[in-house]
Every structure is written in structure tokens, then in C-alpha cells.
Design a protein around this nucleic acid. Structure first.
Lengths: 146, 146
DNA sequence: TCAAAATGACATGTATAATGTCAATAAGTT
DNA sequence: AACTTATTGACATTATACATGTCATTTTGA
């Protein structure tokens, strides 16, 4: 029962997450970024400008907290407000040149780290593991909703 | 880069963990247990009596917080203090009959849930995924320590 | 024997959110 | 155009899950 690989996999998610977050935090050393600022910048970098409620939807956390995160990036000069053609009082948050350069650099260094780590792990195995983990997550979510 | 399965796997750890914790929480409904009390009881159930510092070592969180968790289980009558032959002022925490029955029931129901969820997942695949996740966690930890 | 370590208890601090509320605006509806 | 309803930003409060600091009391081990 305790030997059930699925059970063990479920309980490995916390150590994995903690290790991942520690690694991210370490990669942020000296950048002046916090993990939560990084999260905002990453989404903007990957998906382009977005309003605070849109960011909240992607992050799956409440807009009120995302607002706090975004305000920090605005204050740091890493993002700026732009007119939102879709909603006139809800500005789009957009990376500044500084912000774009910074997040690009952070993500690059993270990619290098992942590549180093991936050296000992077969990409095909990783892909299969990813599929299992995704399926497992879906099923767990579904079990709670029932 | 964003398509790197390893990268995706790393970022799936948070959703997986959240889904898992939501499922655990749901399984605790009506038991009067909190997630943190359950964690204490589970360790005692699997490994037998332990002192607070020993529990803290297993949980990898600070003894001061574990003390709080344990005190809640003591107050709920789910655990009791026993003389510790190894350290005379640090009692062993031990399950009461009530506590033992309760955690056994909770773990049983969790096992049923895992079995249901496992229905759609090949155990061999789960085992391979577990190996990948464990290796990945180790490597991430090592990368932070360097 | 005596210094160093371990323990319980308590107080305070911190990160990551959720929740509640309000006023200003915007959108959709008639 | 008027009116209702929804959205947004801003701010305050609360909650959870820990870490950290400190102290007095044992306990251990040299």
C-alpha cells in the first residue's frame, strides 16, 4: 500500500515543488526579482500583454493578489500600463525593455540549468513521466469535484 | 524551450501537489482532522512512536511547528505522551486507540481513492514516472546546494 | 563535574494567498 | 439615452503554513 507507486508519486509532488522553487529562487539571486514578480514577467514574456484579471486567470490565483504582484513589477519599472482596447479602465500590463531583458535572462539561465539536469534523464522518459503526472493531476482534480 | 518535457514536469509539480492536497482535505471531511494533524498521525501509524524532534526530522519542518501540530493531536485525544527511554524529558508521542482507528480509517479511504484513480494508469508507467520524478528532485536539490 | 546540546514553550515574523468591501468605470440591455 | 449589472483597482482584514528567536529546564557526554 505504501509501496504503491502512484501513492508515492503523489507524495513526491511536494518535495519536487520545493526543490524546484528553491532552484528558481536561487536563480533569481542578484536579479532583484522575487518569485512572484518573476511569475508575472514570465507570463507576459510568453503570452504578451495582459490585464490583471487575465493574469489572474492564467495563474489561477485571485485578481486581488495578482494586482499586488503586478504593482511591484510596475514600481520596479519592469512593466508599464498600456491602453487596453478591450476595456478602457483596465490597462494592459506590458513588459518594459528593462523587464523584457531581465526575464529573458532569467529564463535563459533557467533553461541552462534544466539542460544540465536533463543530462542524466532520458527525454523520452521525461515525456512519459509528464503524461502520467498530467493524467494523475486531472484525475485527482476530478475526484475532488465529484 | 517551453516544450521541454522536463521543464513542464517541473512546473506540473505545483498543480499536482495542490490537487493531491485538495483530495486529502476532502477525505478528511467529517473526521475532525486537519491536514497537519493527519500528517503527524500518519507517521506515527507507519513508523511507531516518536519524539517531536524525530517527527520534525521526518517531516523536514522545524520542531517548533511540529510541536504545535503534535499538541493539537494530544489535545484531541488522538495521541498521548509516553516515557522515552532515550531521553527522559522528551516524551514519545504515541497513538491512542482512538487515534489509531481514525488514521487507519483515513488511510484506508485514501487507498481506495488511489486505487480508483490508478484504474486508468498503468502501474508500470507510474513506477517509471516515480523514478524520473525522484531523480529530478535529487538533481534539483543538488543544484541548489552547489 | 560541568559545559554543550536538546527539548518544550512561547512570542514574533514572513510569504502566499483568500475574502470582503467600496467607489469608479464600463458593458450590455431595453 | 437610460439604466442595470459586471468589471476593475484599491485597500483592509484574515488565514495558513511555516521559519526564527529566545528562554528556562533538562539531559548528555566529555
Amino acid at each position: 500500500m505504501i509501496r504503491d507507486p502512484l501513492y508515492q508519486l503523489i507524495w513526491m509532488s511536494r518535495p519536487l515543488m520545493q526543490a524546484a522553487e528553491a532552484a528558481v529562487e536561487r536563480g533569481l539571486q542578484g536579479s532583484g526579482l522575487t518569485v512572484r514578480m518573476r511569475a508575472v514577467l514570465e507570463i507576459l514574456h510568453r503570452n504578451g500583454d495582459a490585464s490583471v484579471p487575465e493574469l489572474a486567470a492564467r495563474l489561477e490565483i485571485k485578481r486581488q493578489y495578482v494586482q499586488v504582484m503586478v504593482n511591484e513589477t510596475l514600481q520596479a519599472g519592469l512593466t508599464e500600463r498600456r491602453v487596453n482596447p478591450r476595456h478602457k479602465s483596465s490597462a494592459l500590463v506590458s513588459l518594459t525593455d528593462t523587464g523584457r531583458a531581465l526575464i529573458a535572462d532569467v529564463l535563459d539561465r533557467e533553461a541552462v540549468l534544466v539542460a544540465q539536469i536533463g543530462a542524466g534523464i532520458d527525454p523520452a522518459e521525461a515525456e512519459r513521466a509528464l503524461n502520467v503526472v498530467q493524467a494523475l493531476t486531472e484525475k485527482l482534480k476530478a475526484s475532488v469535484k465529484e
